[in-house]
Amino acid sequence: MIHLLHNVSSFISSGGHGEEESVSDIVMHHLTDHPIVATDGSGFFTRFIHELNTTIFSQKFFGVFDMRITRWVVMMWIAALLCLVIFLPIARKIKKAKMGSSSKWVNLWEVLVSFVHDEIVEPNFDHHYVKKAMPWFSTVFFFILFCNLMGLIPGMSTATGNLAVTGGLAIFTLLGMIAVGMVKQGPLWIFTGVVPSGIPIVIFPLMWVIEVLGLLIKPFALTVRLFANMTAGHIVIIIFIYLVMMFKSYFVGIGSVAGALLINLLELLVAFIQAYIFAALSAMFIGSSMHAH
């Protein structure tokens, strides 16, 4: 892990050296994905991933899927690993302490799980289904939260600042809406259930088209919202830091670092809010397809 982080940070710093690089190049370099490439000083993990990339994943799967492991994939894996490392022991401790643990660490995560339970799942699902829906939305919330927060650590990146990643997550929401609708309201839900009942038969086709479009637009909006929010903050931070390289002045340095710090603090808040919004809207969309309108 240390090797990996070291590699990642050297990877980032290499982007800022050339003075002839434009601001757009630098920003793009930090915000876009690249397959992991090992260099001479790389650690074991980087070399291992490089090896995988050049052997198993060198060919595109089905001619479409370029499965080479990239920075963003590694970041997602770190976020997923964080989830596992944090929540597996927490689950054991909570299970053991029936009356509530006295550990601050356990209580911190318990509060967040309760937050997901009370603010995201409970308002959108019937009492009976809250328990069934909890695992899904907890995973969505914490995975996105960790992805978002990781981007604020220097040397790491925000996986959720990429349309493919947010799109992948939103596809789950779309599938969830369709699957829940079909299971709860019958397989013909997609033809009849999406349209509000009691409308004249004449405008039924029009309404159906609009509703189905809405069905697709909802996850698309989720995708763009998370991506844009995570990307915007990072662009501002990088540009603040870039000002130092541009002006080569201590005074600008003080100002721009203070500005970057300020935006970083704001991003902490945004990271949490966007994770909440993504999970809450997913819950609202999936919850609303439980019942006919």
């Binding site: 994905d33 595109k60 799967f61 479409v64 899927f65 370029d66 499965m67 080479r68 492991i69 990239t70 963003w72 994939v73 997602m76 996986a159 990429n162 349309l163 493919a164 990643v165 799109g167 992948g168 997550l169 596809i171």
Partner: peptide, 9 residues
């Protein structure tokens, strides 16, 4: 939108 990254996600 890289399909590979989408699939990995």
């Amino acid at each position: 939108v890289d399909p590979g990254l989408l699939l990995w996600t």
